[in-house]
């Protein structure tokens, strides 16, 4: 059976936005820095609400930040 994982381009996008720090992004989307770290590492999948807020912080569409990837079972 295919398994899918949500991956993200947050690290790349942060660097494209004047090397935005994790803390700056966390402050923008009103979460803790630890949450940003967990999302970037793929250990936590954000809610739709938070995902949209992160996309808005980068001024990018949602699918430019998050995408589905087939993962090995």
């Amino acid at each position: 059976m295919d398994t899918w994982a949500i991956r993200n381009n947050m690290r790349k996008l942060r660097f494209q936005h004047d090397e935005m720090t994790q803390q700056q992004l966390a402050d923008k989307v009103k979460v803790t820095r630890q949450t940003i770290v967990a999302i970037e590492k793929g250990k936590y999948t954000p809610s739709l609400d938070l995902a949209f807020r992160i996309a808005r912080a980068f001024d990018a569409p949602l699918e430019a930040v998050f995408f589905l990837e087939e993962s090995q079972p």
């Binding site: 979460v31 803790t32 949450t35 809610s47």
Partner: peptide, 11 residues
């Protein structure tokens, strides 16, 4: 000491 809890903390 911060008392702010985001969605991951609540989860």
């Amino acid at each position: 000491a911060s008392s702010f809890a985001d969605e991951r903390d609540k989860f």
